[in-house]
Design a protein around this nucleic acid. Structure first.
Lengths: 151, 151
DNA sequence: TATTGTTATACTCTATAACTATA
DNA sequence: TATAGTTATAGAGTATAACAATA
């Protein structure tokens, strides 16, 4: 007969994934109603209030490959939310910047993020939310996590 | 000029996703060295020490569609880790069960899960890990989260 | 020669829906 | 007619690598 094993639910990694998936999917559904994916939101948010950035920098900051940024940018350009322009300084480089309509759109999407956050963590007290934040941020720092975590 | 917005990092949902993605990817890399994906691991673990189950039940327990279970099962059968057999009771139904080699393999994979857990959360004290577990499990319960969270 | 951006390919997951066989 | 399982299609993400243009 097989040896007994620890349950999946014994692992913090499993519990974190359960919560993360639920929160992300709830947010993805809200964004989808506005025709946007989570990755698209992350890129739009990153460019909000910023000068246009080259794909290579966006790839680094978001923890994605340049190829993935190109495809993401293509979709957002198709939606009229992003502009691609050649760099003046470097003939190889391009820059990606928000359109006017995207600049007006991002705060609306930010409101969806706030609402999702409130809905998902309303059952925790302010002190508990701060405890959770502290534990997570220390983990982010200790594991050297960078990037926007889009999946 | 654009209005200021809350930072992405202000949201617990964002921090949880950062940690979850890191932990899951670290685990996925360990599993990949054994030729297995996280979804495949979850299905193997679910069937370990259990009688064979029909795809419909696995879909419900894992929070996946039946179509996804079929494709997952096809891959695992191809790897010699799963057996598909017609149900004796219902002519429409199939059952999926582990092969002998899978039964020997799952504890090895469980060891990878334990090691990943230890590596990712070693910086937290036992009391802190229990606090984190408690906050996460209350969130799972409150949000009505079910399923294995494979993505 | 190295870097930037784009493109191509393959893979894993998602979701919806069509389809076959059986209850 | 409803259910079980399979299959097909399209979408969104991953990764690697090839490629053209420029530094």
């Amino acid at each position: 007969m097989p040896q007994p094993l620890p349950e999946l639910t014994d692992h913090l990694g499993y519990r974190i994934r359960q919560v993360s998936n639920h929160v992300s999917h709830a947010f993805a559904r809200k964004l989808a109603a506005r025709g946007v994916t989570v990755a698209e939101w992350a890129l739009l948010r990153m460019l909000y209030g910023q000068p246009p950035l080259p794909p290579s920098q966006l790839a680094t900051r978001m923890g994605m490959t340049r190829g993935a940024i190109t495809r993401l940018a293509d979709r957002l350009i198709g939606k009229g939310l992003l502009l691609r322009a050649p760099s003046a300084a470097d003939g190889r480089a391009q820059t990606l910047g928000l359109t006017e309509s995207a600049t007006a759109f991002v705060p609306e999407l930010a409101g969806l993020a706030d609402r999702n956050e409130a809905e998902c963590f309303a059952h925790l007290s302010p002190a508990e939310r701060e405890t959770l934040r502290d534990l997570l941020e220390r983990t982010v720092a200790r594991l050297g996590i960078t990037g926007v975590a889009v999946e």
